[in-house]
Design a protein around this nucleic acid. Structure first.
Lengths: 200, 200
DNA sequence: CGCAAGCTTGACTCATATCAATACAAGTGG
DNA sequence: CCACTTGTATTGATATGAGTCAAGCTTGCG
């Protein structure tokens, strides 16, 4: 079976997707962000990854913009050498299909993110983002309303195509309006229904 | 082998990705746009597809937002029932790998598009878009500098997260500055190097 | 403790959207 | 072939959402 091995764990450690693509990674614990950067140095946070999710799916086919993953807290991953996946895949078509499904799911998420980045107002972006996190935590068996944001305001802002200040202001306003309570990284969704209405 | 069959061809015909996902499609001739829509009716053009490209990869895994594809001109596709692909894939791992690679390539493109939508100015967006089209035509053996835009200004604007008027103005300005010439749908890139510098 | 990094809040600016008017292009039918 | 309609594109004037700049505040860590 997959000779799993657990990789770098420190806060802010970087998990580079190497020059020559070799492996996929599954998050085992903690969380990661992935970014791509433009020639001029600007960066875009393309996603956040939680336990059970794959990192590196976009690197199977190589392209000009490569992604970098950074852990947001003390985290572990399981490395899956791609060569090995291919070998196993020959015996177990089910594995290939599983991979395809994961890729397709990420693709589908990314399309939704395009809608968010291209068409939503800042309020809608934040509401959508909070609910998307909520859903992911819920799927993992955690509380859908009370959780920790492992990413900084800056990461959130960048991911949603906003300025940090805008994120800060909107979270404050959401709190004033009783939609959420938030203190630092600890957030609690108080009026999920109203947040949903805000998603646009 | 794949019992290929050719589907709807008329201008503006719609190629719905059905309730129950059944097939992938490869564009055979012409071009398509794909869109997703928010609950309030707003739409985002998530991509344009040219001959040889797959439509429907994001539907393998089903999600709340489903995509719709519309042809931009008289077009044909080749339908690939997913069940069949899976069957064949069992015998030919190479096919699965090909599919994975295609999916990964689209994922990679989408990440770049996030960078565009989230971080680029309108000038940079247009320049990036024009060069991306150029590259795709070149890869297909057509001119990299002279081609037809099969999509409307509105589709371009929507795809790039801009207003139609903004697209119109910028194209006019690019022309004034000698970067391109454009008349209706016929465009010619005159200063590729300068356009590249504009991409940010 | 004290510095550095991250976060919040306010005042002001600007890029791009919106609104409005006109022009152009492609069909359609008489 | 020409008027008419309809959709699409351009151009100008104005408004505004969110960014930028600036200042203070909070948190966590050496």
């Amino acid at each position: 079976m997959a000779a799993e091995y657990t990789l770098s764990t420190d806060r802010h450690s970087r998990l580079n997707e190497q020059e020559s693509f070799k492996s996929l990674y599954i998050v085992r614990s903690g969380s990661f962000k992935t970014t791509i950067s433009a020639s001029n140095g600007r960066e875009q946070v393309t996603g956040f990854y939680f336990p059970g999710e794959f990192i590196g799916l976009d690197a199977i086919h190589h392209q000009s913009y490569r992604s970098t993953a950074k852990s947001l807290e003390s985290s572990t991953v399981c490395e899956l050498p791609y060569k090995m996946l291919q070998e196993i895949g020959k015996e177990m078509p089910q594995l290939q299909i599983q991979l395809l499904t994961r890729l397709s799911k990420e693709l589908s998420n990314d399309k939704s993110l395009m809608l968010l980045l291209g068409k939503k107002t800042s309020d809608e972006k934040l509401a959508t983002y909070l609910l998307s996190l909520s859903k992911r935590f819920k799927d993992r068996g955690f509380s859908a309303t009370d959780f920790q944001l492992s990413m900084s305001r800056g990461d959130i802002a960048n991911h949603l195509g906003l300025a940090v200040e805008t994120v800060s202001r909107i979270l404050s306003r959401f709190q004033e309006n009783g939609l959420i309570t938030i203190a630092g990284k600890v957030i609690s969704l108080k009026q999920v229904k109203n947040l949903e209405d805000l998603c646009g």
